[in-house]
Design a protein around this nucleic acid. Structure first.
Lengths: 119, 119
DNA sequence: CGGAATCCGATTAGATACTG
DNA sequence: CAGTATCTAATCGGATTCCG
């Protein structure tokens, strides 16, 4: 069964896993996307919702998501000024993927913790 | 519509996204899991399959996966010695999650690249 | 063969201070 | 309010060397 021939190389530059992770893998990206799920949200509100994020990291995360076409940024010239962030359709297409990750964690993360303790 | 009440805080320590990413988020983990998909594989074979990985990073990645209960390590006292790595059931439970990530990348990554070029 | 240990340069991220 | 700029501590990862 399963006669393994020579598989092609597994490469960070070509593999789909790595491409998805290139976008999702940092500490704050998934949390920021989650904060924008279903609503437009102001910078300050997002910052206060995401526990522990610095304004530097929030700005950096949002800039990258905007550059990648996942997030839309709208500036309002009010006094004081406000900025609203929301997901583009491309950004929304990531939500099911994140949902699956969350489902896995909810179902299996306790097993990981038990494995760690068993050392 | 969608009258947003005060949502609970979004925290890296508590959020399911972050728990899953804590395991998957580094550069090599997903590729290593992919290499073990469906088969037991020797250290050296894995190293040669995964383009660009150093032995330090491969060992580090595998040690962490083993500690987390996702990977099984078997040492054979042959001459020369050999070590086989394979996924545990817990590790296999991650495969559908990774598959989803790959599917997203295959379907949407080109849009990300186009967004980047449009700057 | 399959590692562990050390060294060291590069990247990262928090804190702080300043601005339109 | 929503950033930008700078500095610095810590972490990361590649290369190298040595071991069972």
């Amino acid at each position: 069964m399963t006669p393994e021939g020579k598989k092609p190389d597994i490469s960070p530059a070509l593999c789909g896993y790595s491409k998805a992770l290139e976008i999702l893998s940092d500490k704050w990206t998934a949390l920021a996307i989650h904060a924008m799920d279903g609503e437009s949200i102001r910078y300050g509100v997002m910052k206060s919702r995401i526990s522990g994020i610095s304004q530097k990291m929030l700005t950096q995360t949002l800039r990258r998501l905007e550059r990648d076409g996942l997030v839309r940024r709208e500036v309002f010239a009010t006094v004081p000024p406000s900025t609203e962030y929301s997901l583009t359709p491309l950004g929304e297409s990531l939500l099911p993927v994140l949902k699956r990750m969350k489902e896995w964690a909810d179902a299996h993360y306790s097993s990981v913790e038990r494995a760690r303790e068993a050392l």
